[in-house]
Simulated assay, not measured.
Amino acid sequence: MKNFYDTHKVIAIFMFISFILSIIVFSSIILFNLQSENKEKEYSTIVIDDQPDDIFKGIVSPEKTDNYVLDSSLGELSEINVVNGQEVNQGDTILTYTEMLDNVNIDMTSLSFAIESAKQNFDNANQDLADAKTKDSELRSEFYKVNEDERSEINSKIETNNESLKTAFRAVQSEKLALDQANANFTEAEAKVSQTSKVNVVKAKNSGIAIVSEENKDAAPLIQIVSPNTKIIAQISEFDFERIVVGQKVSVEPINSNQKYFGKVTNISSVPIAKTADSNTTYYEFMVKPDSNIQNGFNVQIHLKKNGYIIPKTAILNNQVKLEKNSEYVTTTVQTEEVNGKIIVKEGLKKGDKIAENFEDIK
């Protein structure tokens, strides 16, 4: 009988131990599944990264182009003084004309009288200036001779006389210019009287490279002087027009190399470019000044960096996202805007941050 009870006791203990082990195994399975589920959620993350750049096509052009056309008022063109591709400095002669003179109507007496009149005005202006200077010296001398009560009145007179000094000085400069011009007119007329022809030259306004239309001298322009400095002319559609502003920084890449340049938007035209027959989209021209010159004529791509980061709508709820920090998710407030159906985070996140792809999955 004792053996019977001992046997049942062993069986009971074995069943109890089996029950406890079953609970442990079952709990382990549930815990494993929960951990697996959490791990899956950890991997359902999005790494915050920059948006793809907006890219626009452009072409490199001279920053400035001076055009010189045939000018019959200077006479007959007698020489083109530069050749195609020549480097030209500011002030270099680029065109020479020969003008036939008609001296019948030149009135030397009037020109001579103009000189005498200008000289008299110049002398008068100098006398006014001298008088103002003398008065200034007298007032300043008197200033140190009187007592403190009288100095205020004299100081006021000095200030009033200073205005007269300034006016007199400007008058001297103006009358000097008038006298110089009268003398120049007389000298020029005197030279014309003794000549039947005159050589007129056209000088380069700015330095650059000459482009000469030698085959057709009636072409407009006859000569172009293009500056060595460059700009980029590009086009932007009406859909992207609001994305650029003057002063905005961009990067520039020639399509024939991997070289990268930087620059700024310098001008955005408010006048649309004429539409082509096969396009209903309106385009506008804008210009970029590169930090360093690019070869004239190169085709380039202009990269405009977008601000903010795109995230899926499932990742945000009430302007909050689940930000991963130290293997945990922290609710973080962000500032966003919706553009073309996409959520753009403006503030609250940075490149490299990780957020949950589905906000509501993280409790």
Rank of each mutant, 00 (worst) to 15 (best):
A220E: 14
A220V: 13
P221S: 05
L222I: 04
L222G: 05
L222K: 11
L222N: 04
L222A: 07
L222S: 08
I223W: 07
I223T: 08
I223D: 09
Q224E: 15
Q224I: 04
Q224C: 03
Q224F: 05
Q224P: 07
Q224G: 03
I225C: 06
I225L: 02
I225A: 07
I225F: 07
V226C: 03
V226I: 12
V226W: 00
S227F: 00
S227M: 00
S227K: 01
S227I: 01
S227Q: 05
S227E: 02
P228A: 08
P228S: 11
P228I: 10
N229R: 06
N229E: 14
N229S: 15
N229T: 10
T230F: 02
T230K: 08
T230V: 14
T230N: 10
T230L: 06
K231M: 07
K231A: 09
K231Y: 02
K231Q: 11
I232P: 04
I232T: 01
I232E: 00
I232C: 03
I232M: 01
I232F: 01
I232A: 01
A234K: 08
A234V: 10
A234P: 06
A234S: 15
Q235E: 15
Q235R: 15
Q235L: 12
Q235H: 14
Q235A: 13
Q235N: 15
I236W: 03
I236P: 08
I236Q: 10
I236E: 13
I236F: 01
S237R: 11
S237N: 15
S237K: 09
S237F: 07
E238A: 12
F239A: 10
F239T: 09
F239S: 11
D240W: 10
D240P: 08
D240T: 09
D240Y: 12
D240K: 14
D240E: 15
D240S: 14
F241Q: 10
F241C: 02
F241N: 02
E242M: 04
E242A: 15
E242V: 07
R243E: 14
R243V: 05
R243Y: 13
I244S: 06
I244K: 11
I244H: 06
I244D: 01
V245A: 09
V245S: 14
V245K: 12
V245W: 03
V245G: 09
V246C: 01
V246F: 04
V246W: 00
V246S: 06
V246D: 04
G247P: 05
G247W: 05
G247I: 08
G247E: 09
G247L: 08
G247A: 09
Q248C: 02
Q248K: 14
Q248A: 08
Q248V: 01
K249P: 00
K249C: 00
K249N: 13
K249Q: 08
K249W: 03
K249L: 11
V250T: 10
S251K: 14
S251W: 03
S251Q: 10
S251V: 07
V252C: 00
V252L: 04
E253H: 00
E253S: 02
E253V: 09
P254I: 03
P254H: 02
P254C: 04
I255V: 15
I255H: 00
I255N: 05
I255S: 02
I255R: 03
